[in-house]
Structure formats: C-alpha cells, structure tokens
C-alpha cells in the first residue's frame, strides 16, 4: 500500500505532479487493487445467500464457521483499502506531508 513516490511529493512543483502522463501512470497503478476490490464485491453478490446461511448456522449452535465474517472483513479491508488509497491519489487528493 506504500507509495514509493510519496517522499518526493513535497518537492515537486504542482504542475509536474498533475501532468496527464503522471495521472495515467497513477491510474494504471490503481487498476490491480480496483480489479481485486471489484472482484471481491462481485463474488459477495453471488455468494451472499451462502454467507447468510453460514451466519444462521452459527446462530443455531454450529460454531465451525464463526470466524468466516472476520476473515472476510480483513480480506475486504485490505483489497478495498488499497484501492481507495490509489483512487484518491489518481484524483489528486493526497497528504501534505
């Protein structure tokens, strides 16, 4: 998730940071996390009934899969967090320091 160009941001003139070439480069870097996050949400759409069924089984006393929601939450936070970080970077929203 770390951006290798981050340490140089403060020293670059704004025009260089927002050049079309650079924006395109950043957009390309957002593709992989974007596909990963999109893929996970698509998968969620198709398996949401199974996930609901697992929760109902857990509630009725079968504790075998109780950790599944926690693991899913971690996986989505990694993929979607990575994507949202890159997404705002493409739009030019970045930290001062």
């Amino acid at each position: 998730m770390t951006d290798p160009t981050e340490s140089h941001r403060g020293t670059q003139p704004p025009a260089a940071r927002r050049s079309p070439r650079r924006v395109l480069h950043k957009a390309r870097r957002a593709l992989l996390p974007g596909f990963l996050s999109g893929g996970l949400y698509t998968l969620l759409y198709y398996v949401h009934e199974d996930i609901r069924h697992l929760a109902e089984r857990t509630a009725s006393g079968d504790k075998l899969y109780f950790l599944v929601p926690i693991v899913i939450a971690f996986a989505f936070s990694f993929a979607h967090g990575w994507f949202t970080d890159r997404f705002w970077d493409v739009l030019g929203l970045r930290a001062k320091h």
Binding site: Y41, R52, A55, E56, T58, A59, F66, P69, I72, A73
Partner: peptide, 13 residues
C-alpha cells in the same frame, strides 16, 4: 458477536 452468529457481514461490507 460473530461467535453468536449476529454479524450480517453483507451489511458490514
């Protein structure tokens, strides 16, 4: 809460 099956992970996500 997950132990008791109360987490609706679809809502959370």
């Amino acid at each position: 809460y997950a132990w008791d099956g109360f987490v609706d992970i679809r809502l959370s996500l």
